[in-house]
Nucleic acid binder design. Structure first.
Lengths: 232, 232
DNA sequence: GCCACTTAGTGTCGATTGTCAACTAAGTTA
DNA sequence: TAACTTAGTTGACAATCGACACTAAGTGGC
């Protein structure tokens, strides 16, 4: 019997973040221009090494990298998938744990550098059209993340995390429609939201415009997601 | 600017498998008794190190470990989640990519040793009741896997992979019922299966017993899973 | 002051779906 | 040939859905 069944060489272990926000044109993703080899000057997803001496666990590493690279504070974050192979990083066998994060307007401050020369919000569709331009396999990662988010929007309350803390039901419906790319029926939408019971009206607070005021809502439990019995 | 932003110490990278099959009492999971420290002699999920010199990618590593530790050939396999922290393995910061695999009867040969002293199929409920007895955090991993499978059964055709290649619709319904723990309506069930159109009758093949013969079906596309619009 | 306009939120009604149960079908066994 | 078992279909009724219209509550034009 072998005493120690160890790998030939340790794998490189990193965390990559797919950070989504809602822009003028729809979903946007945060990209960072790489300031070091490999893929110097190429656009990439924000990511970094796991620091075994300071990260208590994977989620902590994801939060640290999110903070360091983007200056964003604890939005909704969820592990997506892990990719690992011999070819994605020229430096060797590389393992990347991908996290999807959603962020509301106002929670995304002016993007900062970190050890990246530059950072920018880009419309997902445009980025995916030239997915091959991204560093590593980040194009594929982004595609996978987008598919996951689109699918999950169909049967969950995920999109609330793309809104500010307080919002109206019309705001919420509009987010669903923008992410899904199709119109939804107002009464059916409201019925569905009432069923899962995950938002509550803020008493007395109304949004006023040049029309009927709208009730303002907030999440019942922060950072949570509810699931529908049926697809929207 | 730092030249190399590397981790203090490399993380241990492993793959763990949660292998489910259908037994007399319901879902069963394959456990292996550890033949080496840490957790010598404790029961554990089959797993192993990533071999950066022979595994082309993560999925290949999962398949290799499945083969080596269990002798099972390529069933349905899906990445579940990745856990990583400083405490789960006494040897250091450890990263484990967990895969869920489903296997049909007859595809599970007599369990073999590998570098494990022993292996056995155990009913999931019984194992979970004493989840703390498993090595590492494998109890939690198993719980998570079971929750994922149970949930996915509600809205997908996942359970076909627990059956042999050829089966009747009654067989299929029975698997759903056993995994979900409740009865389903026959006509509704058949309608749902017809909708997603993922199985096809094998012409002329019937299962005979002391009653009306039943049409035999097979998967239209092997190793694929379809999704329902609504929950069962 | 009143009417047009806009967006919020509710109600109606025909169509669809799910539930429950009965019914027909096709074999084996007594 | 009648009783029994499981396969597979059909029908009635209630619950739910989806499209669309309607009411509500504000602003602004004139």
């Amino acid at each position: 019997m072998k005493i120690l069944d160890t790998a030939a060489a340790p794998a490189i272990a990193t965390v990559d973040l797919i950070l989504f926000a809602l822009g003028e044109t729809g979903l946007e993703v945060l990209l960072i221009r790489r300031g070091a080899a490999p893929f110097l000057d190429a656009w990439a997803l924000p990511g970094g090494w796991i620091h075994t001496d300071e990260d208590a666990d994977l989620d902590a590493a994801a939060h640290r990298i999110l903070r360091e690279k983007t200056g964003v504070a604890t939005p909704y974050i969820e592990q997506l998938q892990t990719v690992g192979n011999a070819t994605r990083d020229p430096r060797g066998w590389s393992l990347s744990v991908a996290y999807v994060a959603l962020i509301g307007p106002g929670q995304a401050p002016a993007v900062r550098g970190g050890n990246a020369a530059d950072a920018a919000w880009r419309p997902v569709e445009a980025v995916l059209a030239e997915a091959g331009d991204l560093a590593f396999d980040h194009g594929a990662l982004l595609g996978h993340a987008l598919a996951r988010v689109r699918r999950k929007v169909e049967y969950s309350t995920l999109p609330v995390h793309l809104l500010p803390e307080r919002f109206t039901l019309s705001d919420l419906q509009s987010v669903y429609e923008r992410v899904l790319g199709r119109r939804l029926d107002k009464s059916a939408f409201r019925k569905r939201m009432a069923e899962v019971d995950f938002v509550e009206p803020v008493p007395g607070e109304m949004r006023r415009g040049s029309n009927r005021p709208a009730q303002i809502y907030r999440l019942k439990e922060a950072r949570s997601t509810a699931f529908f019995d049926r697809v929207l």
